[in-house]
Design a protein around this nucleic acid. Structure first.
Length: 718
DNA sequence: TCGGTTCAGAGTATT
DNA sequence: TCTGAACCGA
């Protein structure tokens, strides 16, 4: 939609390509937009500012690095680098990392930055929190010394740059006549502030978003930006896009009906003129394994009917669910593709190679230094490194500078490492980028190291692939293949001078590479619901629709957690074009234990008339009180009690013993029962016989109860 | 510095 | 149950 608008603006002469700023969240989205524009218009899309928030901020900071108080060669820390830097910081400060977990500090720092707050701006509420604020300040100092910026810093630094410099701000405001933002519901507070800085009195700002698809609050997205935008920009034309061209009406009706259970909506109702289509199919399985088995039989018959495997997706709430499904697909010999997982630039061997390149570019990058100072092993042990770190701290200099002052064997070895970096820099001076990368990969000793490793072959291939990635990067950037890696080239903007190597390093940090499995073969698509956002498929299976899993039990502790889960379900449903399957299972293996689950409340929130139950529909859940999502639990003092409590579960032996066949009782483990007060539940175990017989029942939101059969009145639900 | 063992923790994720 | 990180002995 942004693409069409940009094309129209340019074609009708309302704006020149240079006056356009278009922001997305992912590189993929930015690439697609650029590609479609260059197909539609006879222009060089390079003149336009189209990119991710981070990519554009990087561009801004490179161009004005002096004003932003950054070295020209500043490096970008990804999340893992950032965590390593934080651990190092805490170690240097002798902080007990049990009391102050590095992960928490990372989360704290990023949260502050995403709210636009520096350490000095953070309100201190208690002593514990005060320490975090101090660490935040120390962390920023460390980054500044080392010439590195983390992801959130890219945003915050460029926001501050625009805020501080009226001249720059006015320059860009005058330039960008049209600002367009995609997936606006996913923006955080800082990103919105950044846009407000860039939007001048004459800028037309155009934002697209869907509040019902806001599923990233947990990583800082602020849906409130949508209403704030409408108010603060005095949006004259609010356009609701309610006609849907993707799904059949039954599917849309499910989505509409479900999402009506949320409060705080801007409000919309999807419709289509494509016809009702097929009913939405619902299946109940006895176990997760059986769910997978059923799903595969269903998929097989679709394939026999001529459906493409690539047009079928299996969605789940959490990654752990993929294993059972993969196992079943593998056994059945159905090609499949799992989205998510380790990405190219995040691989250890690739990060090692990049660390060498980063050190050549910026020797003060201590994160990179520590990553490879003893990799491959050069006999520089933990003690030597500590010595070096102490010396560097005392002198207030980066590690590489402290090397000189060190005497003895450790000093010599460290000196040799520093010399290696310097030598690599010299040797690659006249080389092109791919040549330089290859040279470093070879001469750093990485290849040799992996040759001696048992499973090093894959890693060597990835290192070779890094050389290819460098070559591909050059041609994507339109840089000649014969330009030296360290030669200054003009990139993107007249003002922006950079070298191919520096640009490649930024690229490697900002774009971690594909985590989407290879395209090509016709394979079924497996992914989390989050990963499915923005995609669509002819047939969609939503699996694991059980209380505690979807909605996920952890969301019960969050304000409005259930509403976000419901939006997630909304996203899942609306991925389907023609056919939608919803499935759940009575039991599921989780964390090594069998859990007895109750079907998801979301199933009850769908309109009956659109559903077709493939298995007999059991009695509806009773309305219950004590819902953990409503913050009103029966569970007493644990406070973090799950919807399906992790109360005493039975071992397999217990279950077998307790099956109850021999006792002549009418109850079985796993059976669904109803109780007048507790509602519907599932029998977890049976004990005793005759008048002593007791059953343990999981009533889901009501908790797990032991009931004496001579007293309690239970009804079978089937 | 390695390889094995032990232990805790296990939700969604882009840059 | 499975994974990754931390830890210890050679």
């Amino acid at each position: 939609m942004l693409t069409t608008r940009i094309a129209w603006l340019i074609q009708t002469g309302q704006v020149s390509p240079a006056g356009v700023l278009a922001v997305t969240f992912t590189n993929k989205a930015a690439r697609e937009m650029t590609a479609r524009l260059s197909a539609m218009l006879p222009i060089n899309p390079r003149g336009m500012w189209i990119g991710t928030f981070h990519g554009l901020c990087n561009r801004l900071l490179r161009a004005h690095h002096r004003d932003a108080a950054l070295p020209q060669t500043f490096q970008i820390l990804d999340s893992a680098d950032q965590l390593a830097a934080i651990k190092r910081l805490l170690k240097g400060l002798n902080v007990d990392d049990e009391k102050y977990p590095p992960r928490n500090l990372q989360h704290f720092i990023n949260g502050c930055k995403e709210d636009g707050l520096r350490a000095k701006d953070v309100e201190v509420v208690d002593d514990y929190n005060r320490r975090f604020v101090e660490f935040y300040a120390a962390y920023d100092d460390q980054c500044q010394r080392e010439g590195v910026v983390d992801f959130a810093e890219l945003l915050l630094r460029s926001y501050e740059l625009l805020e501080r410099s009226a001249a720059l701000r006015q320059h860009y405001q005058a330039r960008f006549a049209h600002i367009l933002i995609d997936e606006f519901q996913d923006t955080n507070v800082l990103q919105y502030k950044w846009i407000k800085q860039l939007a001048g009195p004459g800028s037309a700002v155009f934002a697209v978003g869907d509040d019902d698809q806001s599923i990233y609050a947990f990583r800082g997205a602020n849906v409130g930006n949508m209403s704030a935008f409408e108010r603060e920009f005095r949006v004259p034309n609010l356009i609701k896009l309610e006609q849907n061209y993707r799904s059949h009406a039954n599917i849309l009706e499910c989505a509409n009906h479900l999402i009506r259970n949320n409060g705080n909506r801007l409000g919309k109702e999807l419709w289509t003129d494509a016809g009702a289509g097929e009913p939405v199919r619902v299946h109940e399985a006895l176990s997760d394994g059986q769910e997978a088995h059923w799903l595969i039989e269903e998929a097989k018959s679709l394939i026999n009917e001529g459906w493409m495997r690539a047009d079928m997706a299996i969605l789940y709430r959490s990654n752990a669910q993929s294993r059972v499904l993969e196992h079943a697909l593998f056994s059945a010999g159905i090609p499949y593709r799992v989205y998510g997982g380790l990405r190219f630039f995040e691989r250890a061997e690739v990060k090692h190679a990049l660390a060498y390149l980063r050190l050549m570019e910026n020797p003060a990058d201590d994160t990179a230094f520590l990553r490879v100072v003893n990799f491959p092993a050069r006999g520089i042990g933990a003690r030597s490194i500590e010595q070096l770190q102490d010396a560097a701290r005392m002198a207030g200099v980066p590690l590489h500078e402290a090397v000189r002052g060190l005497a003895g064997g450790a000093g010599a070895k460290l000196g040799a490492f520093a010399a290696l970096i310097a030598r690599l820099r010299g040797e690659t001076l006249g080389m092109t980028l791919p040549e330089a990368v290859e040279h470093v990969v070879e001469r750093s000793g990485l290849i040799t190291h992996y040759q001696t490793e048992k499973e090093g072959q894959d890693r060597i291939e990835n290192l070779r692939e890094l050389v290819n990635a460098a070559a591909a990067f050059l041609s994507d950037q339109g840089v000649g293949q014969d330009v030296p890696a360290s030669a200054g080239v003009v990139a993107e903007e007249p003002i922006l001078m950079t070298t191919p190597l520096a640009a490649f390093l930024s690229h490697a940090s900002l774009e971690a590479g594909d985590n989407q499995a290879l395209e090509g073969t016709d394979a079924m698509q497996l992914m989390t619901v989050h990963a499915a956002k923005g995609l669509e498929f002819d047939a969609v299976f939503i699996t694991g629709l059980e209380e505690g899993l979807f909605p996920h039990e952890n969301s019960a502790q969050e304000p409005l957690g259930l509403e976000e889960e419901r939006r997630l379900m909304y996203v899942a449903i609306t991925r389907a074009r023609k056919r939608l399957y919803l499935s759940f299972s009575q039991t599921r293996m989780l964390h090594g234990q069998t859990r007895y689950n109750i079907r998801s409340r979301f199933l009850e929130e769908l309109p009956e008339a659109t559903l077709k139950w493939l298995t007999p529909r059991m009695g509806a859940q009773r309305p219950v009180w004590g819902d953990p999502w409503s913050g009103n639990t029966l569970q007493g003092d644990r406070g973090r009690r799950a919807a399906v409590p992790d109360a005493p579960m039975l071992s397999r032996a217990d279950v077998q013993r307790a099956q109850g066949f021999d006792r002549g009782l009418p109850w079985r483990v796993g059976q669904s029962v109803a109780h007048a007060r507790f509602g519907e539940g599932v029998i977890l175990g049976i004990e005793g016989s005759g008048t002593d017989a007791r059953v343990q029942v999981n009533f889901g939101r009501q908790g797990v109860k032991w009931l004496a059969l001579s007293v309690a009145k239970l009804d079978p639900v089937n």
